[in-house]
Design a protein around this nucleic acid. Sequence first.
DNA 1: TCCCAGGCTCTCT
DNA 2: AGAGAGCATGGG
Length: 243
Amino acid sequence: KPDDAGNWLGVAFGRILKIGVADNNIVLYNTSEEDYLSIWKSYFDIDRNYMEIINNISRNDVLKTASSCASGIRILKQEPWEALCSFIISQNNNIPRIKGIIDRLCENFGDNLGGGFSFPTAVGLSNCTIEDLAPLRSGFRARYILDAAQKVANGDIDFELCKNGDIAEAQKELMKICGVGQKVADCSLLFGFGRIEAFPKDVWIKRAMTTLFDGELPECAVQYAGIVQQYIFHYARTTKLEI
DNA sequence: TCCCAGGCTCTCT
DNA sequence: AGAGAGCATGGG
């Protein structure tokens, strides 16, 4: 989230990071080269060549337009549990409220890092009851959060399979959790497990796919499906596509 | 006020 | 196996 000086403040991997712009460069504050190399480089997907991807998918005219409207978008590589839990919270919910619930989750159950709170661990949450989660005001999602925390804490969910296994098997693995369907599973795989071939289909994407592509993703985009999904999503929302 | 949100589960055909 | 109601809460 932005602070009053226009910098971005965020927490991930139990660390507070400040980002600003100086002399046309992006600057990371409060960190070290060691943390950059071992954490932030991967978190911001620095090694991926997005220009090359945009060039390749621009063989399709619609994708050329969509990607040019959002060429700065990157796929964050969050911690798997954080991504999974956050997208469980996102279901049938609006973005301001999703943020509020996640803020309260961190404040109530995360560690105080001095200036921010870490995302709570699955093990920590697995000891909670539904009543304990009442301060989150997450509604019917509370029992989903608990089921996920318990299954992850118990090792019932094979994260190695999610990361490196067959993508359909990985989906099934995450859908063992009550409250995780196709869309939440795909979002978790994309943003938490680095699976860019995952293609989450929310209501916006479903509408856009029908309107723009007659239901079929262009061949040149299939190998980057998750990244292309972000361009399509952004395009669909900012241009208010006719349904 | 009322409608609805970046779905999912449960139930009923 | 597919369709539809119901779900907690609160933003716009």
